[in-house]
Structures are given as C-alpha cells and as structure tokens.
C-alpha cells in the first residue's frame, strides 16, 4: 500500500511532476486567475498601491525584528530550562506556559490597552525621552509579538539544548575550554542546528500572527486591506490579494530556510 500511496510523488524532475491531470488543473487554475483579474473589481488598486507596499514592508519588518529579538530572548529561556538552577528554570518555564497557554490577541490587548492606560498616569514616564514612542502603537505590537515568539521558541530551544550529546560538551571540557567558550563554540551552534527545522515552521506561524497588530491601529498589509474594504465596499478582492501576499511571503520563508539548512552539513556525531 505504501508504494501505491507515494507513487504520485516518486517521479523525478519537471517531467514527473507535470502529469496530465496536473496540466488540466493548471489550466483550470489559470482560467480562475484570469477570470478573477477580468471579472472582479481591481480599479481601487492603483490608488492604494503605495499604501499597500508600505504595509507589506511593515509586515516584513515586524516579522524580522520580532523573530530576531524573540530568538535572542529564547536562547536564555531555553538554557535556563535545560540546565539552569531552579530559581532560573521555574520562572522560565512559567513564562513559557503562560505565553503558550493564552491567545496572542489577548496578550496584545493586555499590553496595548493595559500598559497604554497605565503609562499616562506615571509622571516620570511622561517626562522621559521614551514617551513620544510609548504613545504610538508599534512598541506594544513589537513587544507582544517578541514575547510570544520567545515563549514558543524557548520551549523549542530547551529541547534543542537538552538534545546535544553530552559527549560533545565533555570533549569541549576535556580540551580545556572555558564554559563560555564551550557554550559559544559547541553547545549553541549544535542546538541552533537542531532547532532550525522547527524554526522555519515557527517563523511561518509568526508571520501569520502579524496581522493581529492591525487591531491596535498599526498599519500593516492586513490593515491596508481592511481600509480598502471600508472605503470602497469591495469585500473579496482585497482579501484575495492579502492571501496571495501572505502565501508569497510564506514561500520565501520556506525557501530561505531550506537554503539555510542545505548550507549546514547534516552529519551530527
């Protein structure tokens, strides 16, 4: 049965992929695309194109910044859970449980509305140089997405740190490496390598979490589509375009991680 089940994917190269039924499906897909170009309303697009490009840029910026900050937070979180003393591992585990146990939308609203209503009441925050930024929405969006990514990725890093063979660390110590050197040269690279396949999936999940910031008035690509809907009463076309944009970004993420994984030699001792 297994051979029959996988028969469709065993063909090598483009000729194997392009079977007769796929050609028919492609033609149907092309017809649908052409039909949606000609029969749906796209006259709003030129007017909103600059805003849409800005929105796409902001979505990507948000994704990259929060992922990098999130990983930077996740490494100590994972390390504390995998090898830390109890007074570090218990708070780290609690943090991960809370982040993973509540919806991101709720966390976002807690930070934006909660902190946003608290800060104006504190005089020294109002007087500080950060106040012009804290009055805007994006610091709260970045903070919520970063904490969320750190919570999920901290759990992954815990497994990755714990999964590095002990012999590797013992060998590093036998070479007389200091703890920090051993961590930097041996433990962290191997843990990151183990976490890389999961990281690709988590990045896609993070991309799919970014449109939530539109609910706190950040103008990402999702907010642009909502604005088009409100201004012009065109419902489906902006949503379709939105889906295409997100699929394109997802495709880029998946390809980028595949190339990154291919660059790293897979032989783990």
């Amino acid at each position: 049965m297994a051979s029959e089940a996988t028969a469709g994917t065993t063909g090598k190269g483009a000729a194997g992929w392009l079977q007769p039924h796929r050609v028919v499906l492609l033609i149907i897909a092309l017809a649908i695309v052409l039909a949606s170009i000609f029969y749906l309303r796209w006259d709003w697009l030129p007017a909103y194109l600059p805003l849409a490009m800005q929105g796409i840029w902001r979505t990507i910026w948000l994704l990259v910044v929060t992922s990098i900050l999130g990983i930077a937070l996740a490494i100590p979180l994972g390390l504390a859970q995998a090898a830390g003393p109890w007074f570090l591992s218990v708070p780290a585990r609690t943090f991960c449980t809370i982040i993973r146990g509540t919806p991101l939308l709720l966390q976002l609203w807690l930070l934006y509305y909660g902190l946003g209503s608290l800060f104006p009441q504190i005089p020294w925050i109002r007087d500080s140089f950060l106040w012009p930024y804290l009055r805007q929405a994006w610091p709260y969006g970045v903070l919520a997405l970063t904490l969320s990514f750190a919570g999920y990725e901290g759990e992954v890093m815990r497994g990755a740190f714990a999964g590095v063979p002990r012999g590797q660390l013992e060998a590093a110590r036998a070479f007389g490496m200091r703890r920090w050197t051993a961590f930097r040269r041996i433990w962290l690279p191997q843990a990151l390598q183990r976490a890389l396949p999961t990281l690709a999936g988590e990045s896609v999940l993070q991309l799919k979490a970014t449109p939530l910031v539109a609910t706190i008035t950040m103008v990402d690509i999702y907010a642009v589509a909502s604005r088009v809907r409100q201004d012009t009463f065109v419902t489906y076309e902006p949503l379709l375009l939105l889906a295409v944009v997100y699929m394109a970004i997802t495709g880029i993420i998946v390809l980028a991680f595949r190339r990154l994984e291919a660059r790293i030699p897979t032989r783990v001792g």
Binding site: K208, A209, P211, T235, Y236, A243, Y246, M247, T250
Partner: peptide
Amino acid sequence: VVRAVPELVLILMLYFA
C-alpha cells in the same frame, strides 16, 4: 493554502464568503 494564510484572513474570507 490554509496553512500559509493567516487564520485572521481566512476567518474574514470564509465568514463573508
């Protein structure tokens, strides 16, 4: 497609459509 598009967008699409 469903795994590549944010749930928020899918919910709006499916809800309206």
